[in-house]
Amino acid sequence: MRARRPLVLALALAVLLPGVAPAQEAYPSRPITIVAPFPPGGVADLTARPVAASMEKVLKNPVAVVNKTGAAGAVGMQFVATSKPDGYTLLLALSSISIIPEADRIFDRQPAYTVDQFAPIALISADPTILVVRAESPWKTAREFIEDAKKRPGQISYSSSGIYGTLHMAMELLSHAAGIKLRHVPHAGAGPALTAILGGHVDALASGPAVVLPQIKAGKLRALAGWGDTRVAALPEVPTFKELGHPEAEFYIWAGLFAPRGTPEPVLARLREATRAAVGEPEFKAAMDKLETPIAFKQGDEFQRFFDADAKRLAAGVRKVGRVEEKK
């Protein structure tokens, strides 16, 4: 009789489950929203759309992208941080997710959200920034650039997407690692920052590879080095700062999927599973190929470790910059 016990249990469960399932396990049963906290056409949006399309196929449930923009992403991130943790509102965030609360802290502001309000689901892509200068500029290598910057502190200028923005932080991490001082000219977004270096109004720029690749190929810009752990696939001849002896100059523009903290574990597990399947879809790979953004999938502990290390590095970077006017 004892041997029959599991069977009885299984039968009992089979009878009970249909009654329990709709309340607990039928996730997802209505449309899921992925919030992209930046406008259409930006990295977050362009990553979120193919993710949503592939997840929709995997989950057999509608997944929509909503752009909730404002205040450098803080509006959308705050929105998700405070939404109901039921797995129906997700966030596609970029590296800046860990910068904003730190900047708020520096100004003694009530933070719009904190990093621990989110439960990481998966990392989708992580592109290292690369250092570019104009093709006619005197620096042929990153070493020459750093040497020159040491000789003329505060003379070489660079543009960024905005103060405490991702492109600014990349340069700050480099400045600190190499012991140099550069002149920062913030712009209102990555587009204007690129325009500024092409027009010759600044000397250097840290940028995501996809944006500057056409300009490098056309001979307008020269790539000196990358912030990655390894070299950028599309630019195999460009060294990393790590190779050049500046391992602290590590920075990625990454895109990851998050849920509000407190989302039930089974739902998170389902989402992790769905994202893993989604990034394996050929359509998704094709979409990311077109954007020239390699997929860098990580989830679970692996993503958590990456996220924590990145957040720590960026928080230290922001604190080093401090309040801008205090330096004068």
């Binding site: 406008p39 259409p40 056409g41 930006g42 949006d45 362009l46 977004g189 587009g191 996809a210 690749l213 056409p214 300009q215 190929k217 056309a218 307008k220 979409a287 190929d289 077109k290 954007l291 020239e292």
Partner: peptide
């Protein structure tokens, strides 16, 4: 801002906008 969105549209379709376009 508007050209930026249009550039993104080109990139989505695998056309890399640049001086060689």
């Amino acid at each position: 801002p508007i050209p930026a969105v249009m550039l993104a549209a080109m990139m989505v379709h695998g056309v890399s906008p640049g001086p060689l376009l």
